[in-house]
Nucleic acid binder design. Structure first.
Lengths: 337, 337
DNA sequence: CGTCCTCTTGAAAACGTTTTAAAAACGGCG
DNA sequence: CGCCGTTTTTAAAACGTTTTCAAGAGGACG
């Protein structure tokens, strides 16, 4: 009969042992004799005992939770990452505390505060801005941090990212090979690292093809990277006249919005304008005009980041910080054949 | 200079007060004199003190976290719900612990155990199956539970749902009005309440139109409700010959997969087969053939559920359990005009 | 039978808060 | 100046674990 909160002490009395022994059964079962262990386990079952996580982390000095702060939980890219994180965390008995920064630095900071209060074991974060100082403060507090989708600049921290320079480059050289002369790059804030890197990659591709970035590339900046912004960007582009002949969007949500905006205005894709997105989220293969995109190992990103984090937490001695960099892959579909 | 874990005690000595006073500043600022409060707050800032959530919940008897267990974090429907949940929780200073059951009852149970260990204040859950007994156990432990996307049968619990019977009915009567004679219903496990209810609605619509469900409706069951399953269902349907002239998918992911499967096999939508999905996730308006669907107030679902939950937690006395039921809306697009 | 080991168990002290009951400070007033 | 009612502060006892250290229980062996 599971009652409202049974403590280890009640389990102890029922099993005829001391609380310390029960704790041992829970945490180092091998240290306790077979027969008593069985007795204790039976008592646990009978009473419906569930360990009190707060008490446990208070005393033990660390919790079994990790914090995950993402930029946009509505974006399938982050959802895939989150799924990977949840998978690994759950396998290892960790709980995931979810924070959605919505690209807002204040909100992100509030998330980190909540994580600090909860004394999470570690934090996985795709930073919404360029200022990583707050993260060092966390580390000083003994909370490990792994950067996700953002390569670490320093060697004393872990990160898992995908080479966005390569990605930007792949995208733009593909557009060039399709005959593009003037390309628009629709991007989120350049303080978001991936956006900035994809731009660098784009420019490199132009340089490699002997084009002048200043003439070939037009940047269109939006503050939030969703389909609505993409569509607005399309409308602005169209209103401005003089359309580019290719558009590279910094993520697929923008690209889908752009596609919709273009089609609604009667612009034909890819005939009038070719279009390429980024992330290769599931849905772009099914869109009105299927989108070319840059694929990233998203789920993997989440898994590996979490493995790194938990390794750092569990083996603080032997842990070697790693900056893992995956390679993106060009996926060609109708929108930019 | 924020050091590794400053305690309330250190704040107290620096401010020249007792720990109890610091605690009061934190929790009932109005109880402490203006001048000392200022002094304490300064000490808190100087030392970079952050309240230890575990200690706090241990003593206070309740935490500031809620658990959220969803069936498929990869499905934009749940993502939208989660975003709503996170929003409200975050506004009220609660942290959200995320659990993804993947439709697996064992995994769901493990999530609930984790929630129980963390002593979450409450749980939001879209149950992966029909057995809600575990939830009563949680309630006995003093953890409030709000059902999400699953109407409560009993009056002593809160729930937030959308009328799936109406939804199923809307979908099927629309298909009938388009001239459908034989309809396939592609669904997840019927132990998942929404799937079952949408079927009931579908049959009602048939009955209302004077059709015999046994002859008109064919059920195709899949175990996991994603695009891959949808496509497989299409392939099976096609291999089986004798195609229906309309397909109703229990969610949009299935519908997108179905669409792809049909198009790849050269079946024209909506000319040969008309197709309608469910949820009206963002992406279906942009798909190759834009999908008709049943829209639900997804984000709202998450927000309201969380408000209900936190109300139940914060005002246990005055809280009145509510079973909220939203109404779905038919959205007509190309796939079933 | 006593000694010495090893293997198990137990007692008690933390961990950092919150909360309660009581003490201290303060002001006003007789 | 002493007393009383209020406001403000404090000391100390929890909350449920984990952990350390010592004590107890069994054997094996001399």
């Amino acid at each position: 009969m599971p009652m409202g909160s049974v403590s280890i002490k009640e389990v102890a009395t029922r099993a005829g042992v001391s609380p310390g022994t029960v704790s041992n059964v829970l945490n180092r079962p091998e240290k306790v004799a077979e027969s008593t262990r069985a007795r204790v386990e039976e008592a646990i079952r009978d009473l419906g005992f569930v360990r009190h996580g707060s008490a446990s982390s208070l005393r033990a000095g660390h919790s079994r939770t990790v914090g995950l702060s993402v930029i946009d939980i509505g974006n399938p890219f982050f959802t895939d990452v989150a799924a990977g994180v949840e998978e690994v965390a759950s396998e290892r008995g960790y709980a995931v505390i979810l924070g959605n920064s919505s690209g807002d630095l204040l909100k992100e900071e509030r998330n980190l505060l909540v994580f600090a209060e909860q004394r999470v074991r570690g934090v996985l974060i795709t930073p919404a801005g360029a200022n990583l100082a707050k993260l060092d403060q966390l580390r000083e507090r003994g909370i490990s941090v792994v950067l996700v989708d953002h390569p670490a600049e320093r060697a004393d921290q872990c990160s898992v990212a995908v080479n966005d320079i390569t990605g930007g480059s792949l995208a733009v050289s593909h557009l060039l090979s399709g005959g593009a002369e003037r390309i628009a790059y629709v991007t989120g804030p350049l303080t978001v690292r991936p956006c900035a890197d994809r731009l660098i990659g784009a420019k490199r591709a132009l340089a490699a093809a002997g084009r002048d970035p200043g003439e070939t590339l037009e940047e269109i900046s939006v503050s939030v990277m969703n389909a609505r912004s993409g569509q607005q960007a399309a409308e602005k582009m169209i209103a401005g006249g003089r359309l580019p002949d290719a558009v590279f969007c910094a993520n697929d949500l923008l690209a889908l919005g752009m596609l919709r905006g273009l089609l609604q205005a009667g612009v034909r894709v890819p005939r009038d304008i070719s279009l390429i997105g980024y992330d290769d989220i599931d849905f772009v293969s099914a869109s009105a005009v299927s989108l070319s995109s840059i694929r990233q190992p998203t789920h993997r990103l989440g898994r590996v980041a979490t493995e790194l984090l938990l390794d750092e937490c569990d083996n603080p001695g032997s842990h070697a910080h790693q900056q893992i960099m995956f390679q993106p892959e060009l996926i060609i579909r109708e929108s930019a054949p």
